[in-house]
Design a binder for these strands. Structure first.
Length: 572
RNA sequence: UCGCGGGUAGUUCAAUUGGCAGAACACCGGACUUUGAAUCCGGGGGUUGCAGGUUCGAGCCCUGCCCCGCGAGCCA
């Protein structure tokens, strides 16, 4: 093989290009920001991260690294009512799991409260901010609407001295919650509603997870975000599309503060959404609070903790995010595309094991007995991963009494079914060819036992005469089987866009999103699977061993299943 | 109603900035196979939202229209 053959798929010629990279490249080329790039990932610690955040994380950290810069993890903790250290810890952990390392220890917008306050006084002193005594309802009504200009607050023309005095007394705690706010003095007629004298500070006598009771006024998102970026030296402040209309405000604040010329610049991109799920903290919290799922790490949830417990590899998520690129078109990806990345990664890395989900007994009638009259046991070698010979082989006990998958036997085989049925010969993986000689049923007609003979010449699954079989099946020795519990998952929602029809996503909840199989039979080595590891149950799919409950396996994703497609097509 | 953003295959994105509209996933077919997996090969798929204009030539530029998203928290 020549060196060119094993060159990576993405050489310099095919490096991803998108509007963000083009922007950064052009900034680098013309010396904007002195050829420097610094980004930040700015979650609010009021919930758990989900798959949608993965795109932002990959972009914020990935782009900085790609262009030789750095990325901070900064908590946007300006609202004490909803935030908690529980979420801080989980978010730090999730970002690390995804494979990204912040340049510094986590940062907090709350660390900048003093500076923010000083800058607010600066704006008040410049006549660019004022204290408004009206309540929220009144202010909202005065703001006007789309195509309808707002009206100015009667307090807008207060003197600078009075504003300063009032603002200081707000900070000193002289007024109750909601009594007054500090507002930027911009333009109540502006087409962009964000610029109609936005609120900068609100009074909230609340305990903050980091600053405790030091403050009773808290900055709003808009007043805190750009300034935090500036303090940290962020150059490219990347966020999702819904902040597009906030950009003029982001710039307005920065323009009116004593800052160096290298100011951060906000750029928006489309958030990541998927079919058959929801990615909104509010909706996810609803599922958890209403106990519709087990918790924030339920494997059916698109939270990072959920998909991690489900067995999705971080590498697959990173590859996916790189593959989909970034644009400004609102996009909802087919969940199948993510799954295909999960399969691709796991196919290369997951060890193969044999587990029978829905067991039916198979008896080999001509299996030998040993010198004591007991059924012989033979340990056969099976590859741990045919995709990767370096993983070696394991020895699996085989005998005349086996469990096979009930789906793998049909008394009356339908067209194109080429697994086991009376008179049919198949291969038992790594062991022998067997031919079905008969079967037993119970009173209801369910198959209870399948009888076979085996061909001793086909040891290891090889036929010396070269004859072929149409099917190779997995199996587990009855006497050596270990019981495991398996959770099979379908989509959490039955509709492509949950809530599209009725407005409430819960109306589209899939009632059969989880099926638990209590007694699946596994080959002995499955009992040694490390918690959290993901293996392939041959012919069935990838399964993740639960991190805390031994013997519980979550189906990460099934294998592609041509037989299921055939059945689906013939059903129509 | 006003402002901003967006519209290329079923889906998500490309198209060297005005030069033969492509890729992946999905779907269909074939090869191979000790996983009906993986892998390999091939196929169907398009009025580039619509209409007009500029141009030798328009997905790209201009004009008008249509559709979708976001915006009137003291949330982020």
């Amino acid at each position: 093989m020549s060196p060119a053959d094993d060159a990576p798929d993405r050489g310099p010629d095919t490096a991803p290009t998108d509007f963000l990279r083009e922007l950064i490249r052009s900034d680098m080329a013309d010396g904007t920001f002195g050829g420097r790039i610094q980004t930040r990932f700015p979650p609010e610690p009021n919930g758990y991260l989900h798959i949608g955040h993965a795109k932002a994380i990959c972009l914020d950290f990935g782009l900085a690294a790609e262009f030789g810069g750095t990325c901070n993890l900064r908590f946007d903790d300006t609202n004490p009512d909803t935030e908690d250290t529980e979420f801080v810890e989980a978010i730090v952990d999730d970002v690390a799991w995804l494979g990204f390392e912040p340049e510094r220890a986590p940062l907090y917008a709350s660390s900048y409260f003093d500076q923010l306050y000083a800058w607010a006084e600066h704006l008040v002193s410049a006549g660019l901010a004022y204290v408004d005594d009206q309540d929220g309802e009144t202010i909202s009504a005065q703001r006007g609407g789309f195509g309808r200009p707002g009206v100015e607050s009667p307090f807008r023309t207060r003197s600078i001295e009075e504003n300063l005095d009032l603002f200081r007394r707000m900070r000193a705690g002289e007024f109750p919650d909601g009594a007054r706010v500090l507002r930027a003095k911009i333009d109540m007629q502006h087409d962009n509603m964000q610029l109609r004298d936005p609120v900068m500070y609100r009074i909230r006598h609340a305990h903050h997870h980091r600053t405790g009771d030091d403050w009773c006024i808290y900055p709003t998102y808009d007043w805190a975000h750009g300034q935090s970026d500036a303090i940290e030296g962020v150059t490219h402040s990347l966020c999702t599309l819904e902040f597009d209309s906030h950009r003029p405000l982001y710039d307005w604040y920065l323009d009116h503060l004593p800052l160096p010329s290298d100011r951060p610049r906000q750029t928006e991109f489309a958030r990541l959404e998927f079919t058959y799920t929801v990615t909104s903290k509010r909706k996810l919290a609803k599922l958890v609070e209403d106990r519709l799922v087990d918790g924030w790490d339920d494997p059916r949830l698109p939270t990072l903790r959920g998909i991690r417990r489900r067995g999705y590899p971080a590498a697959a998520i990173r590859d996916f995010c790189e593959f989909i690129g970034v644009a400004r078109t609102v996009s909802r990806h087919e969940i199948e595309l993510l799954e295909s990345f999960v399969r691709r990664e796991l196919n290369a890395t997951a060890l193969r094991r044999m587990v029978v989900l829905r067991p039916v007994r198979l008896t080999i009638t001509n299996w030998p007995v040993d010198e004591h009259g007991a059924a012989a046991v033979e340990w056969v070698e099976v590859a741990n991963n045919p995709e990767n010979p370096d993983e070696g082989v394991r020895r699996v006990p085989f005998s005349g009494s086996l469990w096979i998958e009930s789906d793998d036997f049909r008394a009356e085989p339908p067209p194109k079914f080429f697994r086991l049925s009376p008179g049919r010969e198949v291969r038992l993986r790594g062991a022998y060819f067997v031919t079905c000689t008969g079967f037993e049923t119970d009173d209801a007609g369910n198959v209870t036992e399948v009888m076979c003979t085996y061909d001793p010449a086909t040891t290891g699954g090889n036929a010396p005469d070269g004859r072929k079989v149409k099917s190779t099946m997995h199996w587990v020795s009855v006497d050596h089987a270990v019981d495991v519990m398996v959770a099979l998952y379908e989509r959490l929602f039955a509709a492509e866009v949950p809530g599209e029809a009725t407005g409430d996503p819960l109306d589209d909840l899939n009632p059969t999103s989880r099926e638990v199989l209590e007694r699946c039979r596994a080959e002995p080595i499955v009992g040694e699977c490390p918690p959290g590891s993901v293996v392939q149950f041959e012919r069935l799919g990838y399964f993740a061993h639960d991190p805390s409950t031994a013997g519980l396996f979550h189906r990460t994703v099934g294998l592609r299943d041509e037989w299921a497609n055939i059945q689906r097509r013939s059903a129509r």
